[in-house]
């Protein structure tokens, strides 16, 4: 994937570029907003990572200009600001995701993966049904089965599983789950998400040989068929 990084902080830019290259991406960098806008508009960029505060052209203005000229590539906004409202203004300006500094590289990589594969998860999706291996989820009837056997889930467990299945094959972090399933943007301090996940794991994996829900050390979770 061709990724453009627009970031004025050299240390952050370099380590980000290195990590993305190591993950197998083609990376271009820009250190100010104007260069960033030019590169994002002229080259075949698949995804852009844009710092919010940039010299010459502000990060938000950059994203707005991109959207105004019809560029639809996913944009992840990085911010060193306060938060709460800043996230909303960032997303309103046309950003697809928003990450506050300092961030873990694993968190950023997971989000980039999710952004780049939107609507392209490992699970096959017919109109209302999501399917991964022998696990099936029907959004209309709110019915979940594995190997034809019905699995009882609470409303929240159902939402959690739906989110995981939409991102199956990808790494999903705790923060992504808290944001995607609960729409909360704060750190709950206690390991609340882990406990929810372990309950879901009990429900879908306990009676079956092949586990589908995996823990990814130092990053989060992943729902996938183990090869």
């Amino acid at each position: 994937m061709h990724i453009l990084i627009v970031e004025d902080d050299e240390v952050a830019r370099d380590s980000l570029a290195r990590a993305l290259r190591e993950a197998g991406h083609t990376v271009d960098v820009a250190s100010n907003g104007l260069d960033g806008l030019q590169m994002a508009s002229s080259m075949g960029v698949d995804l852009a990572i844009v710092d919010r505060m940039l010299p010459k052209l502000d990060g938000l203005a950059l994203v707005q200009s991109l959207r105004a000229t019809g560029r639809k590539m996913p944009v992840l906004i990085l911010s060193a600001l306060g938060d709460v409202d800043d996230r909303i203004t960032g997303l309103r300006a046309g950003g697809d995701d928003y990450l506050t500094k300092p961030y873990h590289m694993a968190e950023l990589l997971a989000r980039i993966e999710a952004l780049s594969r939107r609507g392209d998860s490992g699970a096959t999706e017919t109109n209302t049904k999501l399917k991964l291996a022998d696990l099936e989820l029907d959004r209309m009837t709110r019915r979940v089965t594995r190997n034809g056997k019905k699995i009882e889930l609470t409303a929240r467990e159902f939402q959690l599983l739906e989110f995981m299945m939409r991102h199956s094959g990808q790494v999903v972090t705790r923060t992504m789950l808290l944001e995607g399933v609960w729409d909360y943007h704060f750190d709950p301090q206690t390991n609340v998400i882990d406990v929810h996940i372990s309950r879901l794991r009990q429900a879908i994996d306990k009676d079956f040989d092949k586990p589908l829900l995996h823990t990814v050390r130092g990053a989060g979770y992943s729902l996938r068929e183990d090869e």
Partner: peptide, 14 residues
């Protein structure tokens, strides 16, 4: 405050 913390994090992780 966030910018140097981010550098610290990036450097350590790198």
């Amino acid at each position: 405050l966030r910018t140097p913390l981010n550098r610290l994090q990036a450097t350590a992780e790198g």
